[in-house]
Nucleic acid binder design. Structure first.
Length: 488
RNA sequence: CGGGGCAUGGCGCAGUCCGGUUAGCGCACCUGCUUUGGGAGCAGGGGGCCCCAGGUUCGAAUCCUGGUGCCCCGACCA
C-alpha cells in the first residue's frame, strides 16, 4: 500500500491532490490560484504539446505568437464574448512602481496610470482578429490557419491543480476562411483531431458532440466538444472547437475581396486544449498507488531497478538493455542510486506512473532472466534476457490498449439511457455517470434540471441517431438523446 | 460576495484555554556504521522574525485590538 495517498474511495478530491503532489507534477505557488508545474508535470505537457503540434502541422496549420496584453476596448467589440469573460479578467492599470513615501517597500506610482487599461488575455480572439484585419485582404490570403502555444489567465473563484487554475497553458488555434462550409469543416476537423489525440495518445475515451446554447463559448455560433468520464463518473470537458461564424469578422471589420471582386466577411473558427488534459489523464487512469501513465505519453517508459543494488554485473546487463530499448525508440532510465533500497524504488516509480519496471537481481541473472512488472495491472513476469526488448515493445502497446479499454468499459458501465425524471434523479444519485435522455431543446429546461440535480448537458453527441421521444423533464417532443452528467 | 476554519523549521502537527526554564514531535534533510528481492535500523547533526502591526506585562507563540494571507462549503468556470 502506498504511503500517504488517500484512497479514491475515502476522498476522491484528496486522492487527486495527493497524486499531483506525490508524483511531483505540480504544486501551489505563492500566487493564489496559480500553480508551479514541476519537471515531471512539465515533461508530460511537453509530450502532449509535441504530439498535438505535429497533428496541427500535418493538417496545414502554422504557429505564431500574439501579445499577452489586450487593450480593454478590444474585448468589448464582440458583445457576447465580453459578457462571457468580463467577470474573470485581470486588468493592468499602471506601468510603474515607486518607493513607498511612508516607509518600506514599493507602491504603485499613481502618475503612471495607463490611459487605456490592458487585459491579461483570457483567450486571444480579439487581439488576433484585430491583427487579422491587416493580414487578410484577398481570397488568396485564405484560409489562414494559425495556432499559438501560450498562457492565459482567468480569475477563477475556486481553483484546482491542472483542472482549473487562474493561469494555465494551452494552445489556441484561430483560423479564417472564405466560406461558411470551409469554416465548419475546419471546426469539425479539429474536434476530430482532439478526439483522436485523447483516445490514441492519452488512452482516454471521449464523446464528440455539440454544446447547447447555454454551454456554448462566448461569441461562438457552435461549440464542439470532447467529453471524457473520470473514475468518479463525473464528466470532464477535455477540448473545444468553435465555429465562430462571422461574429469576429464583423466586430473587427475583417473582409476580403473575393474572386468576383466583391467584399466579403471572413468566416472563423477557434479551438483549444489546455493543461487541464493532465488532470484528465490523472483521473482517467491512476490508482491508489499513484500515477498511471499511458506509454505513448510517459516521459520515461521503462525503469530499470537493480536488486539489491548496482554492481558490475548488473550494470553491464542494464546498459545492454538500455541500448536495446533506445535502439527501437523506447525511453528507459536506469536507477543507479546506491542508497535507496529496492522496495523504496518500486513504490517510488509506481507513484510516478512509469509503465514498465525491469528488476535485475543476481538470482535472476544466474537463470538468465529479469523480472518485468507492468504498472497498469501490477503483474510481474520473468523474461529471458535475450527477449527483453521485444517483450517490452509489445508490452507497451498492450498497456496502452489495456488502459484505453479499461476506461472505455468504465464509461460503458456508467452510461444509462433514462426516460423519466424520477429515474433520472435516481440514476444520477446512485450510479452517476453519463445519462442519455431526451431533451426538449430549451435553455429553460436545461437550467431547471441543473438547479434540481446539478447535472448539465455535456453535449449532443455527433453520432447519436435520430429517435423520437419525450423530454425527460417537460415531456415535450424530442428528436434525439443528449448526455447529462455532473461535470468538473 | 455569504457561511465556517486555519496561520508555529521544507511538509504534517502539538503547545495557546490557565503567560514563566533552552518552543516540542513525526516525516523530510545532512554525516557515519550496519543493511538492501516491496517504502531499513542505530547513533550523531543542521534548520524557527511562533503571519504582520500595535498594546498589556518584570516577562507574550500564549492575553487584548487592528490588519493580512490561506483552506473548505455555496454562487461562477476550460
Amino acid at each position: 500500500m502506498a504511503k500517504e495517498i488517500t484512497s479514491r474511495e475515502e476522498d476522491y478530491s484528496q486522492w487527486y491532490n495527493d497524486i499531483v503532489k506525490k508524483a511531483n507534477l505540480a504544486s501551489n505557488s505563492a500566487v493564489r490560484g496559480c500553480m508551479v508545474i514541476k519537471p515531471n508535470g512539465f515533461a508530460l505537457w511537453e509530450n502532449i504539446r509535441d504530439q498535438l503540434d505535429r497533428m496541427f502541422k500535418d493538417t496545414g496549420h502554422v504557429n505564431a505568437y500574439f501579445p499577452l496584453l489586450i487593450p480593454k476596448s478590444f474585448l468589448s467589440k464582440e458583445a457576447e464574448h465580453v459578457e462571457g469573460f468580463a467577470k474573470e479578467c485581470a486588468v493592468v492599470t499602471h506601468h510603474r512602481l515607486m518607493n513607498d513615501p511612508d516607509g518600506k517597500g514599493v507602491v504603485v506610482d499613481p502618475s503612471a496610470k495607463l490611459e487605456e487599461e490592458l487585459i491579461i488575455r483570457p483567450t486571444s480572439e480579439t487581439i488576433i482578429w484585430n491583427t487579422y484585419r491587416d493580414w487578410i485582404k484577398s481570397y488568396r490570403d485564405l484560409p489562414l490557419l494559425v495556432n499559438q502555444w501560450a498562457n492565459v489567465m482567468r480569475w477563477e473563484m475556486r481553483t484546482r491543480l491542472f483542472l482549473r487554475t487562474s493561469e494555465f497553458l494551452w494552445q489556441e488555434g484561430h483560423t479564417a476562411h472564405a466560406t461558411k462550409q470551409e469554416a465548419i469543416d475546419e471546426t469539425i476537423q479539429m474536434v476530430n483531431i482532439y478526439a483522436q489525440f485523447a483516445e490514441e495518445w492519452m488512452a482516454m475515451p471521449v464523446i464528440k458532440g455539440v454544446k447547447t446554447a447555454n454551454e456554448r463559448f462566448a461569441g461562438a455560433i457552435d461549440t464542439y466538444t470532447i467529453e471524457a468520464m473520470m473514475q468518479d463518473t463525473k464528466a470532464l470537458q477535455a477540448g473545444t472547437s468553435h465555429f465562430l461564424g462571422q461574429n469576429f469578422a464583423k466586430a473587427f471589420d475583417v473582409t476580403f475581396l473575393d474572386e468576383n471582386q466583391k467584399q466579403q466577411l471572413v468566416w472563423a473558427t477557434s479551438w483549444g486544449v489546455s493543461t487541464r488534459l493532465i488532470g484528465g489523464l490523472i483521473m482517467t487512469h491512476s490508482d491508489d498507488d499513484g500515477l498511471v501513465l499511458p506509454p505513448k505519453l510517459a516521459p520515461q517508459q521503462v525503469v530499470i531497478v537493480p536488486i539489491p543494488k548496482p554492481g558490475e554485473e548488473i550494470d553491464e546487463v542494464a546498459t545492454k538493455i538500455m541500448a536495446d530499448l533506445k535502439a527501437i525508440g523506447i525511453r528507459p532510465i536506469y536507477d543507479q542510486d546506491k542508497k535507496k533500497r529496492p522496495g523504496f524504488k518500486f513504490a517510488e516509480y509506481e507513484m510516478r506512473g512509469i509503465p514498465v519496471r525491469i528488476g535485475i537481481g543476481k538470482r535472476d541473472l544466474e537463470k538468465g532472466e529479469v523480472e518485468i512488472a507492468r504498472r497498469d495491472t501490477k503483474e510481474k513476469t520473468m523474461v529471458p534476457l535475450e527477449g527483453v526488448a521485444a517483450y517490452i515493445e509489445n508490452l507497451l502497446v498492450e498497456i496502452q490498449d489495456n488502459l484505453f479499454n479499461r476506461a472505455l468499459k468504465h464509461r460503458a458501465d456508467h452510461s444509462t439511457e433514462v426516460d423519466d425524471f424520477d429515474t433520472f434523479k435516481k440514476v444520477l444519485e446512485e450510479k452517476g455517470g453519463f445519462i442519455y435522455a431526451h431533451w426538449d431543446g430549451t435553455t429553460e429546461t436545461e437550467k431547471k434540471i441543473k438547479e434540481l440535480t446539478k447535472a448539465t448537458i455535456r453535449c449532443i453527441p455527433l453520432d447519436s441517431k435520430e429517435e423520437a421521444g419525450k423530454c425527460v423533464f417537460s415531456g415535450n417532443p424530442s428528436k434525439q438523446r443528449v448526455i447529462f452528467a455532473k461535470a468538473y
